[in-house]
Design a protein around this nucleic acid. Structure first.
Lengths: 136, 136
DNA sequence: ATAAAAACGATAATCACTATCGTTTTTATT
DNA sequence: AATAAAAACGATAGTGATTATCGTTTTTAT
C-alpha cells in the first residue's frame, strides 16, 4: 500500500551517515548534503531521516539536549555526551541486560529495555581545560 | 548579590510537586497551579521550575520525548517511561555506579555519571491491551 | 509512453521553551 | 508605617527544532 520509492536525496543521507561516529544532528546533515544537492530542503532531510529510522537502517539518539542525533549503527549501544562541548561519542560497553531484570523487581509494569547516556568530559575538552588558566 | 525573594507562585509550584510521583511537565503544572492562581503566566512556571532545579529543591528528568518532566525527589534514581501512554514512573533500583567504571574502560574522556531510562509497558496499559480485541 | 503515487522543495505551522519589558511584590532600612 | 532597591510577576514576542501542507517533480510498474 505504501511502497517506498528510491530517492537520491535519501541515498545520499544514508551514505553521508555511513561510517560516521560523530552522531550528527539533522541540521548538520542538511548542511553537508547541501554541498552535493544545493537545493535539498531541510524538510526532506527530516522526512528521510525518520523514514530511515522507521525501516531500521539508522537509529536516533534521544536524551541529548537540544537536537536529536542520528547514528548509522543500529545495534543497541551506549553513548557518552560531553558536558563541555556537547559532542556525542560511542561507548564500547555491551548493553547490560541484567539491569532490566533488576529494575523489574517490584515494578508492576513490564520492562523491555533501557537507554543509558553517560556524561562527563571528552578527551578534547580535558586537554583544553588543562591549558586554560584558572578563572578568578 | 542575587538574593532570592519569596514568591507564593514558586511556593505553590513546590507544594504541588511535593509528594507527587507522576513527574508532570511544565504545562501540566501550569494547568494545575492556575486553579489556585488563575492569572499565573506559563513563563513564571518555567522560571520557577528552573530556579528550583538550580537550587536543588527539585530535579528535572531529561530524555523523555517531548517535554521535560519534573520530580520532587532530588536523590538520583532511575525512571521508566511507558511506550503506550508515555507516563513516567520511578524505578526503585539504587543507581548502579559500577556502570561508570565499565564504560570508562577504553574510553579516553572522563565519565562522571550516567542517566538511564527504562522503557516498556506500564501496568495500566498492560491491562488495557489484554482487554482490547486483536486488530486485523 | 503513460499514469499513479511517492518524494520533492518551499514555506507555514506547531511545540516547548526563553527573553524582554513595564508593572507589582517583597523585604531590608529608615 | 514609609521608602526604595531589586526580585518576581504577567503579557507577550522571539527562538530553535521539528512537523505539516501543498503544488510540482521523480520514480516506477504497466
Amino acid at each position: 500500500m505504501k511502497a517506498m520509492k528510491y530517492s537520491r536525496q535519501r541515498e545520499s543521507i544514508k551514505e553521508f551517515l555511513e561510517g560516521r561516529t560523530d552522531h550528527p544532528t539533522a541540521d548538520m546533515i542538511y548542511m553537508n548534503i547541501r554541498k552535493l544537492y544545493p537545493n535539498i530542503s531541510l524538510g526532506t532531510v527530516y522526512r528521510n531521516l525518520s523514514l530511515l529510522v522507521s525501516i531500521g537502517e539508522i537509529s536516533k539518539i534521544a536524551g541529548t539536549d537540544g537536537a536529536e542525533r542520528f547514528d548509522p549503527n543500529t545495534k543497541p549501544h551506549y553513548h557518552f555526551v560531553c558536558r563541555e562541548c556537547g559532542c556525542v561519542q560511542d561507548i564500547s560497553l555491551e548493553p547490560v541486560k541484567a539491569l532490566d531484570g533488576l529494575a523489574a523487581e517490584g515494578f508492576d509494569g513490564s520492562i523491555e529495555g533501557h537507554t543509558t547516556l553517560f556524561y562527563g568530559t571528552c578527551s578534547e575538552c580535558k586537554k583544553k581545560l588543562l591549558d586554560k588558566p584558572i578563572a578568578l
